[in-house]
């Protein structure tokens, strides 16, 4: 890549334009030098798509929580960009236990301490957790 080919396509979503990153490129004399780049169309698109996928998933989950199919834990897990294995590690539980907590019937019976643990992981209050989707 030559210095004049370094793309400057702004990452205009989720504060992505706050950072200009360094890339390495070759100048006219054939010397490597570092140049700052606002971003590149290809990578911007890939990142945006990953975020969009999460948004779509969350929108689906909100509906399912409202219908009483799943507990709010699934929603906040997605919102925190986690999957079950990561969430289980933070909660100090097995994955099957976390999956169980995603059933509304089980969620209703969770102890205050367990709810507190989840609320802390998701960085919200217990009320926000239990009241979600009502």
């Amino acid at each position: 890549m030559n210095v004049n080919e370094v793309p400057q396509d702004p990452k205009d979503f989720r504060e992505g334009d706050k950072i200009k990153k360094v890339v390495y490129a070759v100048d006219k004399e054939g010397h490597y030098t570092n140049v700052t780049s606002a971003g590149w169309e290809a990578e911007n698109f890939a990142t945006k798509q990953a975020w969009d996928a999460i948004d779509e998933e969350m929108a689906e989950t909100i509906e399912r929580v409202r219908k009483g199919e799943v507990s709010p834990i699934l929603y906040f897990m997605q919102k925190s960009l986690m999957d079950i294995s990561i969430l289980a590690k933070y909660a100090g539980k097995w994955q099957w236990q976390v999956k169980r907590h995603m059933k509304p019937a089980v969620f209703k019976k969770l102890s205050p301490a367990m709810l507190q643990t989840y609320a802390r992981i998701f960085n919200i209050t217990v009320d926000e957790l239990t009241g979600f989707g009502k």
């Binding site: 990153k21 490129a25 990578e43 698109f45 890939a46």
Partner: peptide, 17 residues
């Protein structure tokens, strides 16, 4: 999504290009 992940690992996560 799979393709997107390869692109991000290659270009975005501080690789210098």
């Amino acid at each position: 999504l799979y393709l997107g992940n390869i692109i991000r690992m290659q270009e975005e996560i501080g690789t210098g290009g």
